[in-house]
């Protein structure tokens, strides 16, 4: 029997974040979202959804983003968002 796969905390957060973006924002659970794919300039997430994403992140991971942080420069990829979350935890 294979040893159970233990995801590191980062990977677990990454998966949840990706899952949320795919199902709630892109509305396509099979979408092959890349971690360095531009979310805002790539047209996957708009300004309204960004606020929604921040609410999800706060509720799920307890990392609070202040409104001025919600910009394309700061939140444009899964990797960027993830490192911002980690910096806050």
């Amino acid at each position: 029997m294979a040893a159970p796969v233990v995801l590191s905390e980062t990977e677990a957060v990454r998966d949840q974040l990706r899952d949320y973006i795919k199902t709630q924002m892109v509305k396509d659970p099979t979408y092959p979202l890349k971690d360095d794919e531009p979310l805002i300039t790539g047209g996957l997430v708009d300004s309204f959804s960004l606020v929604e994403l921040a609410v999800f992140i706060e509720d799920t991971f307890g990392a609070r983003f202040d409104d001025p942080e919600l910009t394309a420069e700061n939140m444009n990829t899964v990797n960027q968002i993830l490192s911002n979350i980690e910096a806050k935890l």
Binding site: Y31, E37, P38, I40, T41, G42, G43, L44
Partner: peptide, 10 residues
């Protein structure tokens, strides 16, 4: 799909 979304947004 990426190209479609990017063009629409931009």
């Amino acid at each position: 799909m990426r190209e479609i979304r990017a063009r629409v947004a931009q």
